[in-house]
Amino acid sequence: MNALTSRAFLAPIIAVLVFLCLWELLVWANNWPNYVMASPSDLPPAYAKYWELFIVMGWQTLWRTVVGLILAVIVGVLIGMVMGFSRIMRDALYPLLVGFNAIPKATVVPIVALLFVGQHDFNTVLIAFMISFFPIAVSVSIGLSTLEPEYRDILRALGASNMTIFRKIALPKTLPEFFGALKVAVTLAFIGTNLMEIVSPHGRGLGALFDSGKTNSDYPLMFAVLIALAFLGIVLYYIVVWLERTFAGWADRQV
């Protein structure tokens, strides 16, 4: 491991440790009881006590978030393609999309819960999808609509079909924007999943675990859930970063 990679690994770890120390210090200095704010030292006992729940619930949250995200990618890319290639569709769909995105998803949660009563997995995936497809659709449409005409002309002049131009030029050229949006979408999808998990009765996943911690006034458990969520978010985020390096690494001028 050379100096650069060890720096890339050590710097964030040290930052996290410093953050935990400051948090501990803050609680200790103010002499806050657990029901005001739990401290990092309360978390390991909470994890130790409920580790099985964390694994089961964490997995539920994770897979539903990922499925919602995959749906968001598929639908977002399709909408983005339609809007990117057609001026009329762009004009037609933009207000609709913006309006849809402006609705706080917390208000949609009870509607969805009533609409598909008992379909908890489906509802959760749906909310995760709804909250996260917007940035993907917008970035893909911008990426495609701002493609310089010369790029299209070099292939069109040779008689290439629109599909070929899309595959060879438009698609790869849009990848950096797509991954930028996917990084935003990852964290949004987690918010969507947890909204549903917390709000719906007899929910599953880390959101439900948080809710049960709240019901039982188990404050360290609530904070432990938050940290677990942050951890899952970071893991998914770095998976996206890895995908980005693999498929759009050429866009990074630093290497």
Binding site: E148, I154, L158, P172
Partner: peptide
């Protein structure tokens, strides 16, 4: 296919 084009912008594919 018997035409070749070059523009002011070299439009090379960066990937």
């Amino acid at each position: 296919a018997t035409v070749g084009m070059a523009f002011q912008n070299p439009v090379l594919l960066e990937w």
